[in-house]
């Protein structure tokens, strides 16, 4: 059995309301809010980046996992906002959480699904007994050009999971991927902000990959949508995940507990896995969870997860996702520009 032995989330303290961005962009806030189904988004402090966010999330995961940081043999972090183009985020985080020097790492990037890619790699390494424990995470401080509709959603935050073979709180039963060359969203080297294909990011990109990956997984594990207690789909806005869930045959009850985008925005590599962390915060032993990420470029990773009775033992050892959603400070657009260095 291979699975999660500890999970941790971190979302920065600052929020900006959609109204505040709409005012700056000269748009009607209500139209935006209902169109994107978003109320506000998280903003990193001026002294926060993907490394600092990963460190806080990893510390929270360590509080739950009953192991020493020195026992972790690999750390893979997915992000499209690694602080350095060359120099790994993994080494900064490993040092800051007190890991030994006997570990392997490399930084991952696959738009919004680099976090689940990390999860797959660590899952494979632990399952194959290459390492005893591994740490996988997805974090971002997503950037959007002023005036781009992405500005309403591009947010900061992340989640980290420690995987092992004993004392598992959520077993990863299986995982599949669906991947193709689809240029729906990209950022060229040395560019500050991403570019995207507008409506092209919908049907041929987000929907096609999530639906295919999810259906592949359901077929492989021989389950129906109704077999799951919870389902989490990548959340670029509040509308897409609801629509894709409906298309696949999941209902609102299954997806709402993991749908964080209206309150925190799209945390890119952290998006679907922060949803998973929020669900683990409330799940009961025996609950089943389906997670399907989406990364532009494009691909989806789908996971079949089952919660064990160990979850009750460690759940309250760290702050929950809800704690981070509740404890916030609103900032204005000028402060937002300052914090995100536009």
């Amino acid at each position: 059995m291979t699975g999660i032995i500890g999970w941790g989330a971190y979302i920065p303290h600052y929020r900006i309301k959609a109204e505040e961005i709409a005012k700056a962009q000269g748009q009607d806030a209500d139209t935006i809010k209902s169109g994107l189904r978003i109320e506000e988004k998280s903003v990193p402090g001026i002294d926060e980046d993907s490394a600092t966010i990963a460190v806080e999330a990893a510390k929270n995961a360590l509080k739950r996992a009953n192991i020493l940081p020195t026992e972790i043999g690999a750390i893979y972090l997915g992000s499209e906002s690694h602080p350095y183009a060359v120099k790994p985020t993994g080494t900064i985080v490993a040092q800051a959480i007190g890991m030994s020097n006997n570990y392997t790492t490399a930084d991952l990037e696959f738009a919004c699904k680099a976090g689940t890619a990390a999860l797959q790699i660590i899952y494979a390494m632990v399952k194959s007994d290459m390492i005893r424990y591994g740490l996988a995470g997805g974090i971002d401080t997503a950037q959007a050009a002023p005036g781009d509709p992405l500005e309403y959603t591009a947010a900061a935050g992340g989640a980290v999971f420690i995987l092992g073979r004993e004392n598992i709180v959520a077993e990863i039963k299986d995982t599949v991927s669906f991947t193709s060359d689809t240029p729906d969203f990209w950022r060229r080297a040395y560019q500050k902000y991403p570019s995207h294909g507008g409506a092209f990011t919908g049907e041929p990109a987000y929907f096609k990959h999530i639906i295919n990956a999810t259906e592949l997984l359901l077929k492989k594990v021989n389950k129906k949508p109704t077999d799951y207690t919870y389902a989490i789909f990548h959340q670029p806005n509040g509308k897409f995940p609801v629509r894709v869930a409906k298309k696949l045959g999941f209902n609102n009850e299954q997806i709402l507990p993991g749908l964080l985008v209206p309150k925190i925005g799209n945390t890119y590599s952290g998006s679907s896995i922060l949803g998973l962390a929020a669900v683990l915060d409330i799940a009961k032993p025996g609950d089943t969870i389906l997670v399907t990420s989406y990364g532009s470029g494009a691909g989806s990773d789908s996971f079949d997860i089952e919660v064990t009775d160990q979850i009750l033992r460690i759940r309250n050892k760290s702050q929950s996702v809800q704690d981070y959603i509740d404890n916030i400070k609103y900032i204005d657009y000028a402060t937002y520009l300052k914090y995100t260095k536009k």
Binding site: G45, D47, E48, D49, T52, V55, E56, K59, A96
Partner: peptide, 9 residues
Amino acid sequence: EVGAVFRKI
């Protein structure tokens, strides 16, 4: 009361 956090300096 305060607790340490990890940030860019």
